[in-house]
Design a protein around this nucleic acid. Structure first.
Lengths: 217, 217
DNA sequence: ACCTGAACACCGTTCAAGT
DNA sequence: ACCTGAACACCGTTCAAGT
């Protein structure tokens, strides 16, 4: 880790994300990135301490792209929806980066800002103490878990297709044992990721609102 | 992929999981696994088509260890809790395998069984159609996302410690901007993962119960 | 039929040398 | 002070040969 010259750290970060977007997470290597920047492999160690840091930079780049209206909304529910949706959309915009995001704990400023805003909205909804902790953990887990479900294919524009395949696989295992899953696959065939995300989120919000009311008494 | 002899596929799967448990996910390689089985690296291709399949076997091994009481429970809420908790506990029992679990979509029999049981419980709770789809996706996302949060350290027996570190890091960024996060870290310092898991799950269940009632009318 | 060593094209990183 | 090629110890997999 010395002082750089040939290219900036930002340029390195940008190039790393570009490689992941274009060729997938496994295509990112010190040698490939260096070549893209027109440098020898060892030059990267002027900006970065190890290979691992490349992945961290990519994750930061993706999460920093989450954007939502910063001013407090009249309805705390709507604000929670907007913040969660903004994070999820940022992740979905870079499907090849999802494995990297999932395998790291992020403490980047962008992630902290989203957390702080989410907590503020929940607090205005009447949650506090243990309940606030549980609500916060539940929403962040939900967003992360939904991103994980995206792993199969990059952005299933053909949600019907994918669901159809799932139906087939499940049917092959015998209708009897997995009857519920087969029925669910039919339901999913006419659905789409974003409405499922919002539908699931509304279940969480309804639960939080119910507890907030109980706690208030 | 030919017909095996020297050792069974089960033995290979067992050894792969052992390496991951003992030395971490990145220690698993064709060469290391083969050595552990007392064979040349190429011998593994008799049981497995590629390196990737090793990871799949490890994930299957972990998820197949989820166990819950199979007979339908009187209270559907309690049944949902038991199934979700069983999956989460199986994952937590193998912290080094978590990155592998997160970066793959699993369709192993064990995972399908858990899904089917979960759906059956939710259906008995009065959920159907779109609402059932959203509830199912929400719970599975929640469980996955909670497993992701475990990535930091293997099973934080020292939950207080970890939380204290987080407080420090957040404080270093300035109390003003991240006041809510600092307060949350204090709250988390006296909490533990399992009660947070159950607390978050209860928010989801409360939301589902509320919607089930609305839908019934 | 089953197993495997040598070889190939990669990888991250150390080290010593170039400017 | 900054950059980098050669070298080392790895990796997954092809291929041809061993029994």
């Amino acid at each position: 880790m010395a002082r750089p010259r040939k290219f900036s750290r930002d340029r390195l970060q940008e190039a790393a994300l570009a490689i992941v977007d274009e060729q997938g997470a496994s295509a990112l290597s010190m040698r490939v990135l260096a070549a893209r920047l027109g440098a020898g492999p060892m030059t990267l160690y002027g900006h970065v301490a190890s290979r691992e840091e490349l992945d961290v930079l990519v994750v930061e780049a993706v999460l920093s792209q989450a954007s939502w209206s910063r001013e407090p909304h009249a309805d705390w529910r709507q604000e929670v929806r907007e913040i969660a949706l903004a994070s999820w959309r940022a992740v979905r915009a870079h499907p090849h980066a999802i494995p990297l995001i999932l395998t790291r704990r992020t403490r980047s400023p962008a992630a902290l800002e989203a957390g702080e805003a989410l907590l503020a909205a929940l607090a205005r909804g009447g949650l506090g103490g243990r309940r606030l902790l549980h609500a916060f953990r539940a929403i962040t887990a939900f967003v992360t878990g939904f991103a994980q479900a995206e792993l199969a294919g990059p952005l299933a524009a053909n949600a019907g297709q994918t669901a159809a395949e799932t139906i087939e696989r499940v049917r092959a295992l015998g209708d009897e044992r997995f009857a519920q899953l087969v029925a669910l696959a039919d339901q999913a065939a006419t659905s789409d990721p974003e409405s499922e995300f919002l539908g699931g989120l509304d279940i969480l919000i309804a639960g939080m609102a119910a507890f907030a009311e109980v706690d208030r008494r």
